[in-house]
Computed example of a mutant assay.
Amino acid sequence: RWSRWLAFCGCTIAGLSLLSSSVMRLVSEQNPEDWMDLLLPRRSLYILRGPARYEFTHEILKDEESFFDGQKIPRERRISVICRNLPVLPAPTSPPAPACR
């Protein structure tokens, strides 16, 4: 599944959350019972690399599910800017590019 996305996206995803705070949920691909919620305050920047990028799905929770540490995080109008680096595809005999180690 992920190999299809690797053709278009590199090893890093950066997101800038604007206007509204939100809760992002990371869920393990290997074990869906292994998950973590992250609070993304308004005007925050997050970066997904390594295991967080490749071994977990990520989603922004709907308003009715948007709780963090027992507190309701109201979802208002949300704008996000997502940046993904270009994939670095090494030659078959080359080691991975330094930017993706």
Rank of each mutant, 00 (worst) to 15 (best):
L39M: 00
N85Q: 10
L6V: 13
T12W: 01
F67P: 08
R42M: 11
D63F: 02
A97W: 15
D69M: 06
A7L: 14
D34V: 00
S94R: 10
V81S: 06
F56T: 06
S44I: 07
S80M: 05
G10S: 00
S22N: 12
S28T: 11
R42I: 13
K72P: 14
P95S: 03
V81W: 04
Y54W: 01
P51E: 05
L61C: 02
C100R: 04
I13D: 04
P96G: 10
L39C: 00
S22C: 15
R75P: 08
R43T: 11
L38M: 09
T57Y: 09
R1F: 15
L39E: 00
K72S: 13
P32S: 01
T12R: 01
L16K: 10
F68D: 07
G10Q: 05
R75G: 05
E64W: 11
I82T: 10
T57D: 08
F68Y: 03
P41K: 13
I60Q: 00
L89A: 13
P41Y: 12
C9R: 12
Q30Y: 15
A91P: 06
W5G: 15
P87L: 03
S28N: 09
D63S: 05
C83A: 07
R25M: 07
V81P: 09
D63Y: 01
C9A: 15
P95K: 00
Q30K: 13
I60W: 00
I47N: 08
Q30N: 13
S20Y: 12
I79V: 05
S80L: 06
S66I: 07
P41V: 10
P90M: 08
G10V: 00
T12C: 07
P95E: 02
C100T: 05
P90I: 09
I79Q: 02
R25P: 11
G50V: 03
I47E: 09
D63I: 04
P74D: 04
F67W: 07
D37K: 00
R42G: 12
V27G: 14
N31W: 02
L18D: 09
H58R: 01
T57E: 04
A7F: 12
A99T: 14
A99K: 05
R53W: 06
Q71G: 01
T57I: 03
G70P: 01
R42F: 10
K72Y: 12
P32Y: 02
K72R: 14
A97P: 11
R49A: 02
